[in-house]
Amino acid sequence: MRGIREPTAVPPTTILIIPAFNEAERVGAVVQAVRAQGLGLDVVVVDDGSTDKTASVARAAGATVISHPYNLGYGCALHTGYCHAWRAGYQRLLQMDADGQHDPTMLVRLVEALDRGSDVALGSRYVADGAPPSSAAKRIATRLFAAIASRWTGMRITDPTSGFQGLSRRALECVVNDGFPEDYPDTDVLVEHHRAGLKLTEVPVRMHARAGGLSMHRGARIAYYGYKMLLTLMLLPVRRPTPLRARDTVARCS
């Protein structure tokens, strides 16, 4: 099944987007594992300007590929996928990483949570099933932002940085705005979801350690991540929305 379909014919239901940057060695296996689940998902890999064969490997594995002309960042790749899903009229969106950390057998849990009426299903590695080991800086950052996210959304959130999520069409409408953050879209996006009145649920999922390659959360970037997230969160209540002329230019044009 291909990812891009006629918006009007048979209404498409669920799309899975996989943002990928230089993941040629892993993305093929991820796409195949997803397709083996037989969930009837349209699988779209958003290739974020990779310099390796990510796009052709993903295409060969049976995914539709949308390729950025140059590297734009993880959040941007997600946003392109959101806009594609919005334009094509999908009712539900699932997202997972291309590096093999997210277990495709857990996708069904996200779908079930959306079926039960959640707008945002957040796959958490910390609720149960044990989490893969991570560095001390990362654990502290996760702990801190989990506390902030829990406080600001009024519900217990254990894994705010999780990129393993499911979104309803209502949630999709919120994230196609051009103001979507280009790097590290996690705690701030969750808080914005809550402010928009969306129903959040945390779903326990199993995650694996990275199958190789480089994580985007490493070294000095964790410090920048902390700075950026605190600044964004502090300004969230008083920040102006994206100017009208610049809003939704990706999602609505055609």
């Binding site: 291909r2 891009i4 958003v46 300007g49 539709t64 590929v65 949308i66 390729s67 950025h68 002309p69 140059y70 734009l72 941007c76 946003h79 392109t80 806009c83 594609h84 334009r87 051009d178 280009e182 610049a246 230019t249 990706v250 044009c253 055609s254």
Partner: peptide
């Protein structure tokens, strides 16, 4: 940066649409 980002995204979506 915002314009360059939007341009890249729109180009990517347009190319995917053309391919389809």
């Amino acid at each position: 940066t915002h314009r360059h980002r939007t341009l890249g995204q729109r180009l990517a979506l347009l190319e995917a649409e053309l391919q389809r």
